[in-house]
Design a protein around this nucleic acid. Structure first.
Length: 235
DNA sequence: CGACTTTGACCTGCGC
DNA sequence: GCGCAGGTCAAAGTCG
C-alpha cells in the first residue's frame, strides 16, 4: 500500500538537458511496508495515491493526448524562464527535434530491426549485405522527438506507480553517480513509453524519474484516484 | 509456466 | 580512429 499520508510538493524548476522539472516530495508513512520496493516494481497497489496525481500532471501519459506544439525552434518552453514556465503550466514538455537520445534509440531500433527481421519493409532503412554480415544505412529519418519530462521525488522507493505497468529492461551505472540508473518500458501493447529512474547523487533520497513518449492506452488502474487525492497537496 | 528482474555484452554517438 | 558513456538487448535466474 502506498503511504496513507502523503504530502506531495510539486515545485517547478529547471532541469538539465532542456527537460522540465517538477519536484515531488513524498513524506512516507512509517507504516510503509518494507517490501514497498517490490510492490513498486510489480504490484498494482503501490503508489496509487501518487498515481492519480501523476496522471493529472502527466497529460501526455494518457492516450490521445497531444502535447502542445512548441512555439519556437524546438526548444519550446524550455527556452523560457522558469518563472514563465511556472506561470504557464505545471508540467512542461520537451518535444525537440533531433534529440540525441531519440537518435540513439532510433539507431538502436534500426539495429534491432536489422537483427530481428528477414527483410522488413522499413522504408527508412537501406540494408547492405556483405558476406553474412548485414549492414544497414539509415536514410534521412524524420527526427521526431518523443515528449520527455522528468521530476524529482523524495521517496523511499525507486519506482513510483503512475498507473501504468512497467517492465525493467536495463540498469546502468552512470558516471559520477553512486546509484545505478534503471530503465523501464511500458508493458502496454504497442506502447513505447520508457522511463528512467535514478537517485540523485547529492541526495540519495531523491529519485529522478524521466518519462519519454506517450502512452497509447489507459492506465492499468484508476479506481483509487479520488480517494488517494485527499492525501496529496500541491504547491 | 508466464511475467518479471538481473546483468554482461553489445551498439551508437560524441569528444578528443 | 579510438575510447568513453549512455542506452538497449537477451539469456539466465527468480518469483508468484
Amino acid at each position: 500500500m502506498f503511504p496513507s499520508k502523503v504530502s506531495a510538493v510539486l515545485n517547478q524548476g529547471l532541469v538539465e538537458d532542456h527537460m522540465s522539472f517538477a519536484q515531488i516530495s513524498l513524506l512516507s508513512n512509517p507504516s510503509f511496508p518494507p517490501h514497498g520496493i517490490q510492490q513498486a516494481t510489480g504490484g498494482p497497489d503501490m503508489g496509487r495515491g501518487l498515481s492519480s496525481h501523476l496522471r493529472e500532471g502527466l497529460p501526455s501519459m494518457l492516450p490521445g493526448y497531444r502535447a502542445a506544439p512548441s512555439d519556437d525552434d524546438g526548444l519550446g518552453q524550455f527556452g523560457a524562464s522558469s518563472e514563465q514556465r511556472s506561470r504557464n503550466n505545471l508540467w512542461s514538455w520537451s518535444e525537440q527535434e533531433g534529440d540525441l537520445g531519440n537518435k540513439r534509440s532510433s539507431a538502436r531500433e534500426d539495429y534491432h530491426n536489422k537483427k530481428n527481421s528477414n527483410g522488413s519493409s522499413n522504408n527508412n532503412i537501406h540494408r547492405l549485405s556483405v558476406g553474412n554480415i548485414t549492414m544497414k544505412k539509415v536514410k534521412t529519418r524524420k527526427n521526431v522527438r518523443e515528449p520527455r519530462f522528468c521530476f524529482k521525488t523524495l521517496s523511499e522507493v525507486d519506482v513510483l506507480d503512475d498507473g501504468y505497468k512497467w517492465r525493467k529492461y536495463g540498469q546502468k551505472v552512470v558516471k559520477n553517480t553512486q546509484h545505478p540508473r534503471s530503465y523501464y518500458r511500458c508493458t502496454g501493447d504497442n506502447c513505447r513509453v520508457k522511463k528512467k529512474v535514478e537517485r540523485l547523487a547529492e541526495d540519495p533520497r531523491m529519485v529522478i524519474t524521466t518519462y519519454e513518449g506517450r502512452h497509447t492506452h489507459s492506465p492499468s488502474h484508476d479506481e483509487d484516484d479520488s480517494r488517494a487525492s485527499d492525501h496529496i497537496n500541491f504547491w
